[in-house]
Design a protein around this nucleic acid. Sequence first.
DNA 1: GCCCACATGTAATCAGTTACATGATTCT
DNA 2: AGAATCATGTAACTGATTACATGTGGGC
Lengths: 208, 208
Amino acid sequence: MGAGDGDDSATASGSTLGYALLSLLTRGPATGYQLSSQVKAPLGHFWTAKHSQIYPELARLAAAGWVSAVEQAGPGPRAKKTYEITPDGLAALRAWLVVPPVAQPRSEITLKAYAANSGDPAAMAALYGQLAERAERMLAEYEQDAARMREAGMDHPAHPRFGNYAVLLMGIESQRTVRSWAAWLAASLHGGERIPYGGPSGARDNGY
Amino acid sequence: MGAGDGDDSATASGSTLGYALLSLLTRGPATGYQLSSQVKAPLGHFWTAKHSQIYPELARLAAAGWVSAVEQAGPGPRAKKTYEITPDGLAALRAWLVVPPVAQPRSEITLKAYAANSGDPAAMAALYGQLAERAERMLAEYEQDAARMREAGMDHPAHPRFGNYAVLLMGIESQRTVRSWAAWLAASLHGGERIPYGGPSGARDNGY
DNA sequence: GCCCACATGTAATCAGTTACATGATTCT
DNA sequence: AGAATCATGTAACTGATTACATGTGGGC
């Protein structure tokens, strides 16, 4: 089954990666190589893929008629292909968008916290201290990106890249959460005493 | 390869699922069936697995000497096995705990937000309104769980189930974030106008 | 000359889900 | 009598990562 067997008008429910690529292609035509770098920021904060997964998926999308490809003689042994979303692809994307997602997130840092008191308290405190610092750095970076986006008017829902801004806002909130939660956990494990969790708001005054 | 080839003292780096099961077994001995239900709350908010993945993984952990099994004649055609973590297993878990995690989260709701302005604004607003409501309900549930845990003293770092509390706190913060972000997105898409994001705390009015 | 960015693919493996398969005990 | 819970496994498939493979053009 899948694609390429002559029948392209079926229900053909694609993979999540396929829809992610279609979403990227609504920003304009791109090569597989460009998509694999565009999948870095801000989309990559919440969805990533390697080129080895992207190229076969683009071939499936093309076989389903959801993207069209034009070949140019590019560098290297093979032809460079620029992909564009088709009306069928856009329709499929629109149908997928309104299906409520059910997938549950997986978080390794939270999993490690579950086993926190099996580890050495000092080492665990150091680990979560580092994670809080990393979140702090990423937060600063994201805030700058967000400020640039607001200057470009991307915080308006009608802007064609409003989605970039929405994703970045989620990234900012997620990093804020990690920063305060990891700091609370580090302090708790370090002191060995009960510390009430204050939430991300208390740490919010070192703002922008 | 992996386990079962006679050599059990090697570095034998396990899978993330293996460490998740070891973490659960630090709470006490359990059968595969019990583990597959314990992997629901609170751990399941951030890590899940089906029984079809758990049983083979337990066999690998046993082959590596990280867990030991005792068989009792249980219901059904096969023997019921109760697993217990071994000193080797605990040492492996401790080593894994202090390795900084790098895996990036995948979030389908954020991915859909990236393509928000390819969808019908009213339908997208309705979707994110529903997601905000779901987050609200889960938040209320988690808050009750957290209150019960505090009554049981599980908010003290020395409590053997302090990890349960830490994971639940992260769950609460995550739901809070989703609630406010999804509500902001729904309102933005519905009104079609720029709305400053206020953040998850109601006590804040300094928009961007 | 060497490294990097551009550019595309395949093969092998690992992780995870869905479906198949069996059967005892307890509750309604 | 039927459904739910307890209990354990395998097979087929999909999703994702790591490693293999190739080759050009530009900057240092």
